[in-house]
Write a protein that binds this DNA or RNA. Sequence first.
DNA 1: ATGAAAGCGCTAACAA
DNA 2: TTGTTAGCGCTTTCAT
Lengths: 372, 372
Amino acid sequence: MPATIRDVARASGVHISTVSRTFSAPHLVNPETRVRVLACAEELGYRPNRAARALITGRTHNIGLIIADIANPFFPPLIKAAESQARHRDYHVFVADTNEDPVAEEELVHALAKQVDGVLLCSPRMSNSLIEQLSREVPLVVINRQVAGLPCVMMDVGQGARAAIEHLLDLGHRKLALLSGPRGSWTSREIRRSAVAAARSGGAELTVLGPNPPTETGGAGLADQVRRNGVSAVLAYNDLMAIGLIEGLDAYGIRVPQDVSVVGIDDITLSRLTRPKLTTVATPTSAAGRTAVDMLLQHDTGVRARGVRSGTSDDRRTTAQVMLQTELVIRDSTAPATPDGRSRSGAVADPDPHCPAGPGHPVAATGGVVAS
Amino acid sequence: MPATIRDVARASGVHISTVSRTFSAPHLVNPETRVRVLACAEELGYRPNRAARALITGRTHNIGLIIADIANPFFPPLIKAAESQARHRDYHVFVADTNEDPVAEEELVHALAKQVDGVLLCSPRMSNSLIEQLSREVPLVVINRQVAGLPCVMMDVGQGARAAIEHLLDLGHRKLALLSGPRGSWTSREIRRSAVAAARSGGAELTVLGPNPPTETGGAGLADQVRRNGVSAVLAYNDLMAIGLIEGLDAYGIRVPQDVSVVGIDDITLSRLTRPKLTTVATPTSAAGRTAVDMLLQHDTGVRARGVRSGTSDDRRTTAQVMLQTELVIRDSTAPATPDGRSRSGAVADPDPHCPAGPGHPVAATGGVVAS
DNA sequence: ATGAAAGCGCTAACAA
DNA sequence: TTGTTAGCGCTTTCAT
């Protein structure tokens, strides 16, 4: 039986409202009284019931985090950073997994709406209009997607994809392929747009393969197509697909980077641990998680004034949109093309395998506001 | 302004208690009325406020999941499985990360207690007595640890470690090392106990190195010690450390498995993707997550009878303890020892790298009750 | 089958 | 500075 505010009031000989103030507005209570109340509360192990408090204040001190696939190694660092940041601000986090299913996404927002002060929508697959509509039910911050009028945290994968393509171009590759991501993914569209443009302006040919599930299996399954297309270099939607592709190519006896160069996106931990180590576009996922929480909580004064059911919700937060920088990290899965269109094995392809881990590749996390 | 029960009552011309019944006890309401109420609710987008409901029923329909480190690839599959299972049963999940800190663990349980119907404690680092004490504040299910009198979900790492050591013994290794895990880890103690016993009964020498942080870095940092100890085979607390160790050894020019054999524990996705592919003890993490949720919710009738503040909480759940099976998965990081005490490179060390993925290694997830 | 009324734990005017 | 009172959204006796 957890102690209630009444137990504490009784024990310390004051009215419950005094106990309430002791916790939510300490400066309004006599220091001596406060000490006594605090002592009794401590004694009884009393903790304010947040749900009861929320009922009247309108602030739950909870947030929701809706994730496309928790088991995808791209997300855990983001979840970790978001949870950590939220807890620093005394918020708890509901985490929910949609399995990349747009319908589950919507249902989850509805279900969570009443229990949270806001929801972080991470890599949503639903339509823009639906997202806008849901944002009228509960404050939303969108991660990995741009939605007009809503606060968004994006990573500049467009710039990253361009850098990746240009790197491949520099290495002499002229016949490229792009492994695109899931249908409905903003990130995938950005990558595609940027990659196509970069290839064109570089006078190279780029074949788009997809859409595909953003998994290792998704990548492995494309090995045959990549082989038959006769491309010498591939950019994948993410590291998982890139690694899957490398495995798949390996099964055909095609070596990376000697025969084909492969670039991933994300720089998940895994990408430093496979052989060859993956050349990839690092995305600042932890920073994205932190930033999204900050944006959500920024204007969360809560205080839905008692009884005031304003028809005009003019408490619209300033809908900043933040674009986080990405950075190309060159490792061992890319090498110069040979005249016949294949990669050439050489120094770049086989760096000293005995050199220690090295200083690592820093990830730029500087955010620049691109809209407001 | 979300619609409340009163709005629905007004719209459908009934009393709020009828609306309430429509949702929580539909059979008690006239079918025609029910249809009308439901229609109005739908129209208004009404959803019962779970927090308000919890205030009176005592059931929040939330659970807490406390994780040692979300970014450790061991946990995401467990989180995913737990969240999925919880949602199937109409529960939402708070996820919190302790960063392996026992103090954070305790604070988190307190903070979450009022908002959840129970907490899953995953790989807790705090003391048994504290866990028992906390379990009087909120129902607990302990994962990856055995605590007398409490429901626990364990994975049989003891048996796994024994199988791993025996595998190494079979390969002819006689000078072994164990990389132990974090201080306070039940899993680490079990592994150690079992590995020491297995080595002894096999007449082999086993050096225990640790405790260590359960990370890649933790493993890499031990390469020098492993080298100087002149062991020919190593069992690591987990795959991350094993992979880190392999990297670290590589920096010294020591090859795995030719010079040293390495076995991990967990079978995280990563372990199939590194070179060499890691020999490891597969632990059924998804099954553990599902099972833990089931155990927590099994007897969750909730209904803390109104006003009845029973001093004797005799609603103690049956405290079953479940031990999930593990399985040794032999891949490419182990090879026969040579007479001089090093591994010999050979067929086992270098299997056909071009053979496709293969059927994969199934993970036994059959749970056997070992106590009640 | 439905309504009336009390109350879960708490906060926030308002009074004193 | 403290107490009084009303009530957040909901469920649950108890009547009717």
